[in-house]
Design a protein around this nucleic acid. Structure first.
Length: 269
DNA sequence: AGTTAACCCTGAGAGC
DNA sequence: TGCTCTCAGGGTTAAC
């Protein structure tokens, strides 16, 4: 379940290995991802050098000399460099072939990920156009959350996980940020004070920064660009249940917007 | 217009 | 052992 820290970990691991390399082509073994991978991908990218690997929310943007590839890892996706002789597994759907013979390999058992080519300004792409601010960037703070929440009756957790509110926040980090801020996840977004939103914004920023520093959270299958797991799972306070790290009471589970939600009923109000 | 549910997909784990 | 059932969930679209 790659959220912002896992995508950023992937980006940081791969960017220095990819920048400046030239693509020979692509092998598409399974084009049926979230959106169909275009048939002419190999011809489209062949001969182009990679100029950068960027991130916007949970999307990765692989910049080429002419145009770019927009990648999303969905729920179960991962990207890594595979050696020239490494055989492809059942879920290795796309290889981008590099000049040295090795490949940038997209693996995604559940196939919720995507790979979309484009040209021009990626920010204008329909998938990126309506996205909210980066939670680690200057445009995001408690006042932003407070303003956007005016009149909204949905649960604050669903509000926080909406990429139009702020990008990069999935189920794990929404649970953690709300716990750290002492806010009940099922409270209506419009009924939270500006002061408490400031606390929530700070908690979200802190938990995301700590998770990036730990290389992301590996619950089952996340690995970085070198195939290594992340260690932030050790620091999760509420996700997955158990006892509250603060008061010792039993954590409770709710369902909000079809997602498992964990909270401490004593520490979160 | 805001909110909720369905949908895409496979693997893991539980229960029988 | 092997079957069936449930759950995991990001993001888009449809329906209420």
């Amino acid at each position: 379940m790659p959220e912002l820290p896992e995508v950023e970990t992937t980006r940081r691991g791969l960017a220095p290995l990819l920048t400046g390399r030239r693509l020979r082509g692509a092998t598409v073994r399974e084009p049926r991802l979230r959106y169909p991978v275009p048939a002419g991908l190999g011809e489209q990218v062949a001969g182009q050098a990679i100029t950068a690997l960027e991130r916007r929310g949970k999307y990765l943007i692989l910049r080429l000399e002419a145009g770019w590839l927009l990648l999303h890892l969905g729920m179960s996706g991962s990207l890594r460099l595979a050696g020239a002789a490494e055989p492809a597994g059942r879920h290795d759907h796309v290889d981008l072939e590099l000049d040295g013979g090795d490949r940038l390999r997209l693996t995604d058992p559940r196939r919720f990920g995507s790979l979309l080519p484009g040209a021009g300004d990626p920010a204008e792409h329909p998938r990126l156009r309506a996205l909210g601010p980066e939670p680690l960037g200057p445009a995001f703070d408690g006042d932003h959350l407070y303003r956007r929440a005016r009149g909204r009756r949905l649960a604050v957790k669903a509000f926080l996980m909406d990429a139009r509110t702020v990008v990069g926040v999935g189920n794990i980090y929404a649970n953690e940020a709300l716990y750290r801020a002492g806010i009940r996840p099922d409270r209506a977004a419009g009924r939270i004070s500006r002061q408490r939103y400031r606390r929530l914004a700070a908690a979200l920023r802190a938990v995301l920064e700590a998770a990036v520093a730990a290389g992301g959270t590996t619950l089952r299958d996340f690995t970085d660009g070198a195939g290594q797991p992340g260690y932030f799972a050790l620091e999760l306070a509420v996700y997955g249940g158990g006892a509250c790290p603060s008061c010792g009471g039993a954590l409770r589970r709710l369902r909000i917007a079809q997602r498992s939600t964990w909270l401490c009923p004593r520490c979160q109000r």
